[in-house]
Amino acid sequence: MNSLNNFYYKIKPVFHTFIFEIRLQMKKFIIFPVATILLLFLNSYLPYILYTPLESSQAYFYEFGTIYFIIIIVLAVSIFFGGIICSEFKNKTGLEVLPLINRYKLLIGKYFANLILVIGIVAVHYLTMALFGYNFYGGPLLKTLLYSFGFAVLYVLALGSIVTFLSSIMPSITPVIVIMSGYVLILDNILSFLILGINSELEPLYSLGYLFTIITKIFFPDFSTMERRDTFTGGWLFPSIEGALALLSLYTVIFFIFSIILFKHREF
C-alpha cells in the first residue's frame, strides 16, 4: 500500500502535466483532424465519386489514401513535439514550472500528451479511411488496417522522439519544424538515393521515408510473401515487419534518452 502511495505521488505531476498540455494544445489538435478529413475527402472520396475508377481492392484503396499521409504525420509531429523542450527556454515558461517539477516528469507528461494528440489525428485518418472504404467496398474491413495503424503509431513515436531530441538542442520551434520537414520530405530521399548508388545491397532501414512504406504496404494481406525489392532496378521497396519494428523502436528509445539527457543539462 505504501509503495502504491509512493508511486501515485511520483506519477501525479506527470498526470497533471499531461492534462495541462492536452488542454494547451487543443486548438492545434482540432485543426489537424479537420485537415485530414478534408484531404481524404478530396483525395480518396470525391475522385471516385466523380471520375476515377475505384481501386481493384481495399488494400490498394487504403495504400493510395495513406501515401501522402506522411506529410501530415511529419507536420503534426513537428508542430506538436517541436516546442516540447525549446519553448520552455525560449518563452521562459520553464522558469515557472521547472523549479517545481522534476525535468523528467515534465518531459514525460508533455511527451505523452502530444503523443496522444498526434495518435488521435492518425486515428481520425484511419477511421475516415475505413468509413470511405466501407462505403465503397462494403464489409468486412481489412484487419490489416489495424496493423497499419499500429505501425503508424510506432512511426509517430519514433518521429516524436527525434523531434523531441531536436527540440532539446534548438533555440525555438521554427527550426525544428523546418529541419524535420526538410529532412523527412526532401533530404532523406536524396540521401537514400546517394547511398543506394554506392551500395544497392544495403537496405535503407536508416531512412524515415523508407520505414514509412511499411504503413502503406502492410495493408496487403499477402504482405509477408510480397517481393521487397524491385525486380528491375533492385531497389528496396519496403522493410520487413521485424526490420521496421526494430528500427522504429530503436529510434524511439535512443532519441528519447538523448532528449532527456540534453534537457537535464540545458540551462537558462
Binding site: 497533471h16 502535466t17 495541462f20 518563452n91 522558469l95 514550472v97
Partner: peptide, 18 residues
C-alpha cells in the same frame, strides 16, 4: 514571469497540483 497561453485558474491549479 512568462506563462503558457492559458488562464490564471488553470495555470494556478496546475502549479498547485504539481
Amino acid at each position: 514571469p512568462h506563462f503558457y497561453n492559458s488562464n490564471p485558474y488553470r495555470l494556478l491549479k496546475y502549479i498547485a497540483n504539481l
